[in-house]
């Protein structure tokens, strides 16, 4: 019987320590299986979140050997089992217990993003037409499973604790999905600059690297949003036009 050692973070709030456990290893096992085995046989009150166990719900986020990952999608045969595997809670959020952290800030921050506002239906049947290629671009962002690993790894949140000033990569992706939605007519560029702190992102791409859905967060979401903000606030021609035009041309339509 193969075995592996796990060091799992236990404790409440700021107090905690690693507990070492040994788990039996079968072919194809993932970290979440080991945590469940330890929970069922050794530590019944070990707190962890999980739901789908298939990488679709984004509940079981943790830091495995220091790397933010989904426990359900991290196979043991991809880890070095000659050393104990460390499993810790995400660090960018307040700790609750063991592997569980308080992610409610993400939900509050989402409320600040202006909601979807479609243009009136313009097809004869009272609906809309959209091209698959326009839809593809947005669907990349809508794959997001809200695991918040990108928020966890973002140094603006993790090291600098700017939760009040910067909404983080997840909500940049959310905003990008709305801004690039073929039907949406809302303008969120002012919010991005002033309320949501897009300027804090200095494009280190840490978020992109940890995304379990492979969303190209920085290149496809944040940078285009930055460009839109620049177009609105710093484009001299647009500014000039807006002075002479009663309708604000630079904000009236979206690229």
């Amino acid at each position: 019987m193969n075995e592996a050692r796990f060091q799992i973070w236990r404790g409440t709030g700021d107090k905690g320590h690693f507990d070492e456990h040994v788990a039996r290893i079968d072919e194809g096992m993932v970290v979440l299986d080991a945590v469940h085995q330890i929970q069922a046989e050794q530590a019944p009150d070990l707190a962890c979140r999980w739901n789908c166990k298939a990488g679709k719900c984004g509940s079981c986020s943790a830091e495995i050997n220091g790397v933010p990952k989904l426990m359900c999608m991290t196979r043991l045969d991809q880890l070095d089992l000659t050393k104990p595997v460390t499993v810790e809670p995400m660090k960018a959020f307040p700790h609750i217990r063991d592997l569980v952290v308080d992610v409610s800030w993400n939900y509050r921050a989402k409320m600040k993003v202006r909601k979807f506002k479609p243009r009136p239906p313009d097809a004869a049947d009272g609906t809309w037409r959209m091209d698959q290629k326009d839809v593809d671009r947005v669907q990349e962002f809508r794959k997001c499973i809200e695991c918040f690993l990108c928020q966890d790894v973002c140094h603006v949140l993790r090291e600098h604790d700017k939760h009040e000033e910067f909404v983080g990569p997840r909500l940049m992706v959310y905003t990008a999905a709305l801004e690039m939605h073929p039907l949406d007519v809302e303008d969120r560029r002012g919010d991005l600059k002033h309320e949501h702190g897009i300027g804090f992102c200095n494009i280190t791409k840490c978020c992109t690297n940890v995304c379990p859905e492979g969303i190209t967060i920085t290149d496809n979401a944040i940078i285009p949003l930055k460009e839109r903000v620049v177009d609105k606030f710093y484009d001299p021609l647009g500014k000039l036009l807006s002075i002479f035009s009663s309708a604000d041309v630079s904000t009236g339509s979206k690229p």
């Binding site: 909601k115 979807f116 479609p118 609906t127 809309w128 037409r129 959209m130 091209d131 698959q132 839809v135 947005v138 669907q139 809508r142 709305l178 939605h181 073929p182 949406d184």
Partner: peptide
């Protein structure tokens, strides 16, 4: 289904955009 589209859902499209 149509109501979900009104609320922002983006389904895959036919060639003519439906």
């Amino acid at each position: 289904v149509r109501e979900l589209e009104e609320w922002g859902a983006i389904f895959d499209r036919t060639r003519d955009g439906r």
